[in-house]
Design a protein around this nucleic acid. Sequence first.
DNA 1: TCTGGGGTCCTAGGACCC
DNA 2: TCTGGGGTCCTAGGACCC
Length: 426
Amino acid sequence: MSSIQRTRKLALVDCNSFYVSCERLFNPKIRKKPVVVLSNNDGCIISRSNEAKALGIKMGEPYFKAKDIIVKNKVEVFSSNYSLYGDLSRRVMRTLKRFNSEIEVYSIDEAFLDLSNFPDSEVEKVGKEIRETVLQWTGIPTSIGIAKTKTLSKIANHIAKKKQSGVTNLVGIDNLDPILEKIEINDVWGVGRQLTKFYQKNGIYNAKQLKNKSNMWIKKSSNVLGSRTAMELRGIPCINLETTQTKRKSCVVSRSFGKRIEKFQELKEAVANYCLNASEKIRSESLVAKAITVFVRTSPFQRNFGYYSNAKTIDFPIATNNSIEIVKTAVFILEAVFKNGYQYQKAGVMLTGLRNDNGRKNLFSSEKDEKINILMRSIDNTNYRYGRSTLSLASAGFQKKWNMRRQYSSKIDTADFYCLPKIKAI
DNA sequence: TCTGGGGTCCTAGGACCC
DNA sequence: TCTGGGGTCCTAGGACCC
């Protein structure tokens, strides 16, 4: 045995109020102010600065419900700008890879890092170094939790969020019970609303109590995922670090409309646009779809108009990523699910059964297919170079009355020179 | 007036086969 | 007419995540 202890150590790096931090980066005036970022269509609040949290603004709360507090306290409001957040996310992840190239990018603002190669005694110091480096290189503040399993690093991260240092290390602590006892059951990773209700009914209110329940009982009353969580709380790793990105299995594009839609024609345009978007996405990942689902629905919150929701799936004869075929099939489905006399609030398309496009010709492929592939490729290249929807299909429409509301966009584009932050020479 | 979007995994149950 | 048991595969729906 080596003299240095090398237990399994995972760090969870989580960006603090990520979307808000991104907006602040390009707008120093809002650094100390309460800030919120809204979801698509300016619907819900999906990111809050600490100052906004302190005002009692809740995560996921509809914007219009929080408006009173927002106006009264002069909270800065932004529509979401996903290309900006995606760009900054990539910068953060690139920085993290300096510390270990084997990282799992878990979401736009989170990554797991394997720190097992560092001695136990140094791991906290490494955490602080990671945090400082990310802040210095990207301007994004983070919190870091370190522990033996993913579920425990999530808990460590939860604690780190409330600390000045921003780093919490649970490796090397023999008895975690006093810490786990303070973690409410609904704050445990993998325990959502339903499980919380169920666990509480059975006297489990915190992480320590779940940890001490028998696997048999948990598995019987929930499922394997539940018992995995309990094992991980005991420090037994059950969830691996996924360092290689696996290809996705489905691709969804759906939006709520800026205003309600009643006409088939407008719905058709929206759905055609979602199809173009989705097929471009899967083409860029060299995938083909086995099937397509289209769904439409009215607002579930507007009871006086009666709720209607419908969806239908069609299998393609041969898996495809051809925009024209995808749009055509989607419109065919839409004709089947559309009913007159409703105010539609949302629609979407889902490409499923995705697999690699091996480009192999099959029995039915023809010269025409070849030509279509070439056409698709040139559309993608043009749109990449000159901006999305430079080239489109006529069925996608031009008016786009149904487009999203984005009233508070910061309009920052990291690909645009004039949006770069200015530095004043002293 | 105004309530996001995009994923994954698990389970139960049905269809089908031998 | 009697009518078993085990396996696989698929799907819909639910739960969870960020």
